[in-house]
Amino acid sequence: MGLLNAVRDLRTIQQLLTKAEAEALRAGEELPGPEHLLLSALELPDGSAVRAFERVGADSSALRKAIEAAHHNALAAAGLAEDDDGVEAPVERRPAPGAFRSTPQAQQVFQQAVALSKSTRPSRLRSAHVVAAACALERGTAVRALTALGVDRARLKAAACAEVGLPG
């Protein structure tokens, strides 16, 4: 990897993880999960994650609402759904001191995204790598949010791979 790409990667990784943490804290959650990585990837300046969603006709701007809907639906299935009017916005958490922490699933998605980026040319992490890696998950909030959004994960993964020149 060239030095320039390495520097770009560091900047991209910092943006990705910082924003993912901010998304989790804003939702009142202690650790960022894959769904927060996805939200973060959609805001990375390279735009390939957004374009991957567009390729499958999905509205990426609705992902945050879809995550909330996934949690709401899970509570509803348990007979514990609250009226939307009765739920106060969560207190935004402050970052915990120390090194960046995330759920094991978010770590897995991040590491898989980096591994995918090494097999593309130029060998540089782009937001679609994160989308492709997240689509490999089979369970959890991110999966249920994508389902709530009407997204077929296999198609989205293929679209994300196409964005970065990887075979789907």
Binding site: G28, E29, H72, A74, L75, A77, V91, T141
Partner: peptide, 13 residues
Amino acid sequence: LAAVVAMRRRATQ
């Protein structure tokens, strides 16, 4: 398990 995740999230908040 999805309900557990949602309840845990709500409890944390």
